[in-house]
């Protein structure tokens, strides 16, 4: 499973395209959760273009791997990937956020193919993921459940209820990935409600903790592989990311948690993304 140079190139090119698709979707939607969509992008690209056992032609295939985007506000960054994988026509994203559209800022699993659970209210994804992982075990199936959480979301008590349960049930078929971009809506996590020492907290709850860069595939992919092969219990990857990654005027700016783009900002955003990938 080791990352080959060719795979690295493929993932990098895909992430480049997806970041531009996210900007395009943000324009169509009239605004969205830009910062988090860009910080989670490389995590989702790694999963969807290298690791997941899925079949977009059969979105309800019972033995597929599950992805629960517990940080449901990342929908505007998730839908372009699902479209690119072929779950639905990319053209449909032109209606994102519009009245009557199946796509809202928090994706509805009953309306958007490829979405395994409707999320949006924070702290709900990990309990659902625990249920899915228990379900896979009960059915004696080896599909995996990936739960993508936010770092601000770590404030929610239900994360820790579910963390306790996942350890109790020794759910080695459950992988948590925290998009640790260091910001929630109102500012930096450490200023609003400190979540550190995050790794020690997860360790204390009985999880194997893997610290990784959340953008560099040469680090992120081995982390995911270690989590997949770990069989003694649940595993969480704390993926260190940058909010707004790739768009220089959004990076590490809390205000870009949610925002809209005019023509000038769109041009600058695309230029910034192209510039970042020109050096890769």
């Amino acid at each position: 499973m080791a990352l080959s140079d060719k795979e690295l190139k493929t993932l990098t090119e895909k992430a480049h395209q997806i970041r531009k698709d996210i900007i395009q979707t943000l324009i169509w939607s009239g605004g969205g959760h830009a910062g988090g969509a860009l910080s989670q992008a490389d995590i989702l690209v790694a999963l969807y273009y290298k690791y997941l056992n899925i079949d977009p032609k059969r979105p309800d295939w019972p033995d597929r791997d599950r992805v629960i985007l517990s940080k449901g506000h990342g929908g505007v960054g998730y839908a372009p990937i699902l479209a690119d994988k072929g779950y639905f026509d990319k053209e449909l994203l032109k209606d994102f956020n519009h009245t009557g559209s199946p796509f809202g800022m928090h994706l509805d699993g009953l309306k958007v193919k490829g979405v395994d659970a409707s999320t949006g209210s924070l702290g709900h994804g990990l309990p659902i993921s625990v249920g899915l992982a228990l379900g896979a075990r009960l059915k004696k199936k080896d599909w995996l459940t990936y739960c993508i959480m936010g770092d601000g979301e770590q404030n929610e008590g239900t994360i820790w209820e579910a963390a306790m349960a996942a350890c109790h049930y020794k759910l080695s078929n459950l992988i948590g990935i925290i998009d640790n971009n260091k910001y929630c809506i109102d500012g930096a996590c450490e200023d609003i409600m400190c979540i550190e020492p995050l790794g020690k907290k997860w360790e204390a709850f009985g999880w194997k903790v893997i610290d990784s860069d959340g953008h560099d595939y040469t680090k992120l992919c081995p982390a995911i592989e270690e989590a997949i092969t770990y069989k003694d219990g649940p595993c969480v990857i704390i993926a260190h990311t940058i909010k707004g990654k790739g768009v220089d005027f959004m990076e590490d700016v809390a205000a870009w948690h949610y925002g809209g783009l005019d023509a000038d900002k769109t041009k600058k955003a695309i230029e910034s993304i192209d510039k970042m990938y020109a050096n890769k």
Partner: peptide, 22 residues
């Protein structure tokens, strides 16, 4: 599954089990 004294988690876990076909 006796999930302990954690009702919110219990209903989330139930949702996950239902999504898995139970």
């Amino acid at each position: 599954f006796n999930v302990g004294i954690a009702e919110q988690n219990m209903f989330g876990v139930a949702a996950g089990l239902a999504l898995a076909g139970f």
